[in-house]
Design a protein around this nucleic acid. Sequence first.
DNA 1: TTCCTTGCAAATCGTTTGCATAATG
DNA 2: CATTATGCAAACGATTTGCAAGGAA
Lengths: 131, 131
Amino acid sequence: MALKHSKQRDLIKEFLMTRKDHPTADVVYMNVRQQNPNISLGTVYRNLTLLADIGEIARLRLGDGVDHFDADTSPHYHFVCTHCGSVIDLEMDDISEIVAQAGANFDGHIEGHVTYFYGSCSDCKKKELSS
Amino acid sequence: MALKHSKQRDLIKEFLMTRKDHPTADVVYMNVRQQNPNISLGTVYRNLTLLADIGEIARLRLGDGVDHFDADTSPHYHFVCTHCGSVIDLEMDDISEIVAQAGANFDGHIEGHVTYFYGSCSDCKKKELSS
DNA sequence: TTCCTTGCAAATCGTTTGCATAATG
DNA sequence: CATTATGCAAACGATTTGCAAGGAA
């Protein structure tokens, strides 16, 4: 299972690093195909999974039934707009103390947590007000 | 769209109320079929979705690719064991102040958040130690 | 040459849906 | 009677996988 270089994998990672909007596998596929029209969707999925497994990218499960991917693996939280589906990084203080709170009355071992926020993004909020 | 009574829906809700382990649609189907062998999986899905939509049950998306359902709709948090997949209720203090923290530097409107914790449940933790 | 990676297509899996029939109010 | 709900099977959408061929070390 030694990792070998692959042009496709490089392309996928490079593309992901240019985006801050947490694209899905399909969006990655559409875009990467412009550089390499022969790349297959299966290859995109395989590489996204591989990159996520080795920690070079993050896989986001945001309850919309589709996985999103993020080249930014630093700890941060996401906001999901329930109107337009956009996924936005939040600038907020660390809340990892909730892990300690969760473990206080629990006899297993808590390794981490998944948290995301939802509501209306600023654009959709404006549209609501003006309608 | 007036709701009509249905024996199947009652069965599903009753079954769910007897369980604290947050079963999936398939588990509901398997069990409810013992009372009504003719019930179809489609009916189980339709009713779980309906009950979740009207707020009588909660749909849990815990990143394992399968929806779980919970008859307990009171606010509480869940723990997911990454080894055996079990889903357990946590007894912990309210952490909804994280919504305010998330909104501090955000110009959209945050309506809520999804949070769950993961790690090893007490049983799996024991097995790890003894191996 | 070894064996990891790809492209392609078929397969999987959870979930949804169309339709004719049955049950409810 | 007007409608909602059901059973069945087919359809779906996202993701995974088997396989033979291609590419990296």
